[in-house]
């Protein structure tokens, strides 16, 4: 499904971000990317979204080489990948419904179909009552759930989460991670870049530990520390 082959990434200042990463993630897997800040976790996510390009190496999703993907095809790649952020990135001047429907706009769906899909996804994250609220009226955990709803509303095969619990309290973090597990059970590949030791140790999944741009450890049912 996702394959990184000898991926390296330098910046112009010669600082090494990723050093010869080899990694395969299968369809339907749940993977934690762990490691200290600046280890290169976010860079891997950026490479998968083709926001950044690797300096060398090859990168495939479903057998398609991202390096050979034309710029004009990037949108179609991204429609298959949902993204969740630490700071949610919801649009403050739009309602919950509008925020989620945002991701469906360019499909030329009918209004009723958009309504139905938004409602279904809100049902999944448990926030159907907040349809007409503005993000500022919601708690952090609720905002993150809306962000998740937006990420999965068009049923992507891959879900990327960059520090999804970074600004949430432990209890809410737990709820969010449970939600991500639930989404994973629908056969969506989930990749979570996180610092959250408690979560990683409690919900045991595959753990890939990145340190100084290299894979330090890759363990099924792993913990935060080896």
């Amino acid at each position: 499904m996702i394959k990184l082959k000898n991926i390296s990434k330098y910046y112009q200042s010669n600082s090494l971000i990723l050093n010869n990463i080899n990694l395969t993630i299968n369809k339907g897997e749940f993977v934690y990317l762990v490691g200290p800040s600046g280890a290169g976790k976010s860079t891997i996510l950026n490479l998968l979204l083709k926001i950044e390009e690797p300096t060398s190496g090859e990168l495939f999703i479903d057998g398609v080489s991202l390096l050979r993907l034309k710029d004009s095809k990037i949108p179609y790649l991204r429609r298959n990948i949902g993204v969740i952020f630490q700071d949610f990135k919801l649009l403050p001047k739009r309602t919950v419904f509008e925020n989620i429907a945002f991701a469906l706009r360019f499909y030329n769906y009918s209004r009723s179909r958009i309504r139905r899909q938004v409602y279904q996804v809100l049902d999944l994250v448990g926030l159907t009552t907040k349809l007409d609220c503005y993000p500022t009226e919601l708690s952090g955990g609720e905002q993150q759930r809306i962000c998740i709803a937006r990420a999965i509303v068009n049923n992507p095969q891959i879900l990327l989460a960059d520090e999804p619990t970074g600004s949430l309290d432990p209890e809410t973090s737990w709820e969010i991670m449970t939600l991500l597990s639930k989404i994973n059970m629908r056969d969506t590949t989930v990749i979570v870049a996180t610092h959250n030791r408690g979560i990683v140790d409690d919900i045991r999944k595959r753990v890939i530990s990145i340190n100084k741009g290299a894979i330090a450890r890759d363990e099924e049912q792993g913990s935060y520390n080896s």
């Binding site: 979204l49 004009s72 949108p75 179609y76 790649l77 991204r78 429609r79 298959n80 993204v83 990135k89 649009l91 945002f102 991701a103 706009r105 360019f106 937006r150 068009n154």
Partner: peptide
């Protein structure tokens, strides 16, 4: 909004 649109897969023309 533009950033998010790009991330959720909106084409440049859209």
């Amino acid at each position: 909004e533009i950033n998010i649109m790009q991330l959720v897969g909106a084409t440049n023309n859209f």
